[in-house]
Design a binder for these strands. Structure first.
Lengths: 197, 197
DNA sequence: CAGCTGACAGATTTCAAACTTTGTCAGCTG
DNA sequence: CAGCTGACAAAGTTTGAAATCTGTCAGCTG
C-alpha cells in the first residue's frame, strides 16, 4: 500500500510480508499481495526468497526472535530460582496469550508453522528449553535445586507446561482458572527440582 | 449393511452409528448412513436421538467409558504409588496412541469433540483426573507422598502430561523419544509429590 | 396406537468450471 | 548488465448451481 520507489531489500520484503500476514492471515495472504504492497511485480519477490514458504519462515523467524527477547534469563536474576522459574513461565504464557489476543492472524500463522513442524519453530522451542535449562542450572549452582542434568529437566518443564503456552491449547486460555492451574503445575515441578534438605 | 428386521433399540443404533463413524469418519458420516445400515428410514433414528450431535455424543460416551475401563486404579494396586502412577500414565498414553493408530476415524471424532469442548469429553477428563487423585491419595495415605490436597494435584499431573495423551498432540506421538520424555516429566512430578524425609 | 415412513423446508455439502496463485524465465530497461 | 517485468504452465482456490443432509411431522400400518 506504499509503492515507494526504493531498493528492494530482504528487510523491506519481510516488513511488507509481516504486514500482509497480519492483515490477511496465513490462509489468504499471497505473494502477489506482498509485491503489491511494495509496488513491484511478484517475480521480484522471488529474486530474494526462493518460495512462499521460505518467505513465511523468514517472517516467523524474525518475529519469534523479537518475541523471545524478554525471556532471556539474564534479564531477571533477582530472588530464588524457583521464583524466577515461575515468573519466566508466567511471562511466556502472557506473551503467547497476548499475541493470540492482539495479533490473531500472526498467531494463526505461528500455529500453522507449529502444526507443520517447521524447522523455525523447532529452533524457537530449543531456545525456550535452553532458557529453562539456564534457570535450573543456576538453581543447582546455588544449591536450591538438585537434578542430575539440567538439560532434560529444562525440556521436561517446557513439556509439562505445554498447556499454558503451546498454540494448540490456545482455546483453553480463556478459562479463568488457567493462571491458578499454571501455578499448581509449577508448585509440583519446583518441589521435584528441589534439593533434599 | 445388516438390514435385519428387529426392534430398533438405542443400543443397536449406537452400534450402527459407531460403525459408520469408524468407517466414514466424523466429517462424512451422516444420519442417513446410520439409518441405511439399520435398514430403516432416517426419521426413525430421530425418534431415539433428538439430534445428530446427541447421537455422536452418545457414541463417544459409551466408547470413552469402555476405553477408560483399564485405567481404574483398583486394577493395579501392586508396588509403590510412584510406580503405579508411571504405569497409569504409560497405559493412558498407550491407549490414546493405539487408538490414533488403529481407529483413526474414531480418534478424529474424539479430537473434534475435544475441540468443540463437548460435555462428554469434560466428563472423561474429570474421570481421568479422579483416577490420578485416587493414586495420589493412596500415596499420601502410605506416607509416600505429601501434598496438601490430592484433588488439584491430580489435575496438575493430568495437565502436566497433556503432551502425551491429549489428542491435540497426536502428531507428536510418532517421535521415538516420546516414551523417554514422559518418564522425564514423571520423574519430576513424583519427586514433587514425594514426602520430605 | 406405538412405532415407522416418506415428503418437505431450510441448511449444508459437493462438483465442475472460472479464476487466482505459484514459481519460472526470456527479454526489457535504467 | 543487475535487477525488474510480465507472460506463462501447473497447481490450487473460489463460486454458484445441483445434490444431499438435517430435523419435523402428518399419516400409514401391523
Amino acid at each position: 500500500m506504499t509503492p515507494v520507489a526504493a531498493v528492494l531489500t530482504e528487510e523491506r520484503i519481510l516488513d511488507a510480508a509481516e504486514d500482509v500476514l497480519r492483515r490477511f492471515g496465513p490462509a489468504k495472504a499471497t505473494v502477489v499481495d506482498v509485491a503489491k504492497a511494495l509496488g513491484v511485480s511478484h517475480g521480484s519477490v522471488y529474486r530474494h526468497f526462493p518460495t512462499k514458504v521460505a518467505l513465511r519462515d523468514a517472517v516467523a523467524r524474525r518475529w519469534l526472535d523479537r518475541l523471545a527477547e524478554p525471556l532471556d534469563p539474564a534479564r531477571d536474576t533477582e530472588g530464588p530460582a524457583a521464583e524466577r522459574l515461575l515468573r519466566w513461565l508466567e511471562r511466556l504464557a502472557a506473551i503467547k496469550q497476548g499475541m493470540a489476543l492482539n495479533d490473531p492472524e500472526l498467531f494463526a500463522t505461528f500455529g500453522q508453522l507449529t502444526a507443520e513442524a517447521r524447522e523455525v519453530v523447532a529452533a524457537h522451542v530449543d531456545h525456550l528449553a535452553a532458557a529453562l535449562t539456564e534457570i535450573i542450572a543456576d538453581g543447582v549452582r546455588s544449591g536450591e535445586f538438585a537434578v542430575p542434568d539440567p538439560v532434560p529437566a529444562g525440556r521436561a518443564v517446557l513439556h509439562a507446561t505445554a498447556r499454558f503456552h503451546h498454540p494448540l491449547h490456545a482455546s483453553e486460555w480463556s478459562a479463568p482458572a488457567i493462571g491458578a492451574e499454571l501455578r499448581e503445575v509449577w508448585r509440583l515441578l519446583v518441589r521435584g527440582l528441589a534439593a533434599r534438605p
